Simulated scan of single mutants.
Amino acid sequence: MPASYKISQAARLLGVSDDTVRRWVEQGALPVTDSSPAEIPGDALARRAVELSAAAGDPTDVLSSARNRFTGLVTRVIVDQVAAQVDIQAGPHRVVSLMTAEAVRDLGLEVGSLAVAVVKATTVIVETPRP
């Protein structure tokens, strides 16, 4: 069964207000399911996340420190016999994971699925804008 998200969930995943998501639905920028309450199909939400990320550009004008857990939507899954590539759009961040095809099947990953990319790194770079 394809993933779908309530308006409040979609808003959190996209980093916008519930009202913004409702406005996008009214404008036809996001489709909704026929269910009550209305939900947004995961694949449509994934496409919107990619559009917003592309429009956001380089976010170097903000103070930030990346975290090790990136919650987002799966925007692409490429699977062959043994290996797979999974792209996750977590707000303005695109995270790409290489894993086994078996792991993709076991996790049920598909475009529009909710996923968390967990990054284990020995080096973390923190940047701030120049004064």
Rank of each mutant, 00 (worst) to 15 (best):
V21F: 03
S4W: 01
I88P: 01
R12V: 13
A117P: 01
Q9D: 14
T123W: 01
D34H: 15
V25Q: 02
S64N: 11
L63H: 14
V119N: 02
A121H: 13
I78M: 03
V16A: 04
G28I: 12
D87P: 09
L107H: 14
V118L: 08
Q9H: 08
D80E: 13
G28A: 10
V21L: 07
P2V: 09
A38N: 11
Q81P: 00
I88M: 09
K6T: 08
N68K: 05
E102D: 12
A66F: 07
R105A: 04
N68D: 10
A84C: 11
P2R: 06
L98A: 11
L98E: 02
S8M: 00
I40G: 05
V111K: 03
P92S: 02
E39H: 14
E110H: 11
Q27S: 12
S64Y: 13
E102T: 12
A29T: 12
S4G: 01
V79G: 00
P2N: 07
G15K: 06
P92G: 00
V50P: 06
D87H: 13
A90L: 08
A10N: 03
V21A: 03
S64V: 01
T20P: 14
I88W: 03
A38M: 09
L114T: 06
S97N: 00
R47W: 10
D61M: 01
A49G: 07
E110T: 10
T71E: 08
I40R: 00
E127K: 05
W24C: 15
A103T: 07
G91D: 06
T128C: 08
V126A: 12
R23P: 08
S17M: 05
I7F: 06
V82W: 10
V74F: 05
S97T: 03
V124G: 13
A66K: 10
A55R: 15
D19P: 08
V32P: 07
Q9R: 06
H93T: 15
D87T: 11
G108V: 10
A46C: 07
E26L: 15
A10K: 00
A84M: 11
E127D: 02
S4R: 06
Y5I: 03
L73W: 04
V82K: 13
A101R: 05
A49I: 10
L107S: 02
L109H: 05
R69D: 12
D106N: 13
I125Y: 03
T33I: 11
M1C: 09
T60P: 04
A54I: 15
A46E: 07
L63T: 14
I78C: 02
E26C: 15
T123P: 09
S17G: 10
D80P: 03
R69A: 13
V86Q: 00
